[in-house]
């Protein structure tokens, strides 16, 4: 499945970059994430509870960050599996400054298998879009909160 899109953040590119690279923020970003540990500078492992139509289950997996050019771009690779299936994907995130904030462009391919693919197929597109939207909203909120924190200090 192909994923691509863009989102404008109300904040500087550096702030957005810090957000994206913070595992604690990432954990709140992706709905259903129950655990996210940073193993090294570029490697995370975590667990996520997913529900797609009739299929639900927990998945454990890893995220690798590669080709990092702070605060501009990076490649994300992810793979994981669980009883409801497996996923494997990679994509790039690109941040650029513009007048009203920071533009994030993302694109990638994700391969899905098992029950997720065979029964949840019709709902995967919609669900992934919903999850991305929720994630972006989460990032927006995190960004606002960090601004508030900075203001408080």
């Amino acid at each position: 499945m192909r994923i691509e899109g863009e989102h404008v953040f109300n904040g500087s590119r550096e702030d957005v970059w810090v957000m994206v690279r913070d595992p604690e923020v990432l954990a709140t970003l992706v709905p259903g994430t129950t655990k996210l540990n940073q193993l090294s500078e570029s490697e995370y492992e975590g667990e996520i509870n997913l529900r797609i139509g009739p299929i639900s289950g927990s998945f454990s997996g890893k995220i690798f960050v590669e080709d990092e050019i702070p605060p501009e771009s990076c490649t994300l690779k992810a793979e994981g599996d669980g009883r409801a299936g497996f996923f494997k994907g990679s994509g790039t995130v690109h941040l650029s400054e513009q007048d009203d904030g920071t533009l994030m462009k993302y694109e990638g391919d994700i391969q899905i298998g098992g029950k997720l693919a065979s029964i949840g197929q019709r709902l995967i597109d919609v669900t992934s879009k919903t999850m991305i939207n929720q994630g972006m909203k989460g990032l927006d909120a995190a960004l606002e909160a960090s601004k508030a924190e900075v203001a408080d200090e």
Binding site: Q111, I112, G113, G114, A117, S118, I119, Q121, R122
Partner: peptide, 14 residues
């Protein structure tokens, strides 16, 4: 089937 050999419509709903 997708390129990974996953059957994408394995139910009577699909």
């Amino acid at each position: 089937f997708d390129d990974n050999g996953q059957l994408l419509n394995a139910s009577f709903a699909d």
